[in-house]
């Protein structure tokens, strides 16, 4: 056991050394320096804390919620916030706090599904356009423009209407509207990489186009896309809530925040809590992702 493995000071020195001994050390050192920069930004740290809290809430929802989020008690409807029901109850007598807590799971599922659909889609289209250029670029970018020229919510709305209601379909609809900016970022990135010497070298060695794009171009685009994604999470959450609000997102009785606000609309002037708390939840989580994304961008994407 070496000494520096246990002492944080030595860790610090090892990580921040200006003459790393291995590739791994350099890489870790870079990450560590980025972490230090990130840590200096209080807003970003708050964002990180919020996002971590979201993950924890989702993971331990059954322990944190005091009630079953789906259990109706028609004789206890629209109760004001109290010690028993922290956020009050809704029109079917369900505990709003428990529904908000379980709603974190719904939100996370939506966000993750969108990310794993949009990322690859945008990446592929953008990299292909940027790498091949010419007519491939023109065609793909025209398609991107068409989608960008749509009001995003209207497009998502149309897709959901076409696919039918439900969480999965809402995700697909959002993914359909969210990819164009990713494609643009990936394209811009690829255009830079394309002309790099090592790519030309590989081309000369006779590597297949497919191989170059998938093995060398795509991985280089990933970091900036991750930043873009974090930054976009808030937008995704808000669009998803908007669909839920219009009654086209999650199916009842799933505790989706947007749908919860929508049902609280009717009681807004008398039982303000029904629509207020899910809204605050959306704001906090969206703000968390925005702060985090903002911090990450400062650190990783200095350009």
């Amino acid at each position: 056991m070496t000494d520096h493995a246990t002492s944080p000071v030595t860790w610090h020195a090892w990580l921040t050394t200006t003459s790393p001994e291995s590739r791994r050390q350099a890489k870790l050192g870079q990450l560590y320096r980025q972490w230090l920069a990130f840590r200096k930004n209080p807003a970003a740290v708050v964002g990180l804390v919020i996002v971590l809290a979201l993950l924890l809430l989702a993971a331990f929802a059954p322990l944190i919620a005091q009630h079953d989020p789906l259990a109706q008690a028609l004789d206890q409807r629209l109760l004001a916030p109290s010690a028993k029901h922290w956020f009050g109850t809704d029109a079917l007598g369900r505990d709003i706090f428990s529904r908000v807590v379980y709603g974190t799971r719904v939100t996370l599922v939506i966000v993750m599904l969108v990310v794993i659909t949009v990322g690859p889609l945008g990446l592929l289209i953008g990299c292909a356009a940027g790498y091949f250029g010419g007519w491939v670029d023109t065609v793909l970018m025209r398609i991107t423009d068409v989608f960008l020229a749509f009001p995003r919510l209207v497009l998502a709305l149309a897709f959901v209407a076409a696919l039918g209601p439900g969480l999965e379909n809402a995700v697909i609809a959002i993914a359909f509207t969210a990819w164009p900016p990713y494609a643009r970022v990936a394209r811009a990135e690829t255009m830079i990489i394309r002309n790099a010497d090592y790519i030309s070298a590989m081309r000369l060695q006779g590597a297949s186009q497919m191989r170059i794009v998938l093995k060398h171009v795509v991985p280089m685009c990933v970091p900036s896309l991750i930043v873009r994604t974090t930054y976009d999470m808030a937008g995704i959450i808000i669009i998803a809530a908007g669909l839920g609000f219009l009654g086209l997102g999650a199916q009842p009785p799933i505790p989706e925040w947007g749908a919860m606000i929508s049902t609280g609309r009717e009681q807004i002037f008398d039982q303000w809590w029904v629509a207020t708390f899910p809204g605050i939840a959306i704001c906090v989580v969206a703000l968390g992702f925005n702060l985090l994304g903002d911090g990450l961008r400062d650190v990783l994407d200095a350009r």
Binding site: A241, I282, C283, A286
Partner: peptide, 8 residues
């Protein structure tokens, strides 16, 4: 401003 759903 980016984080508040406009409908809410």
């Amino acid at each position: 401003g980016y984080s508040i759903p406009v409908f809410w």
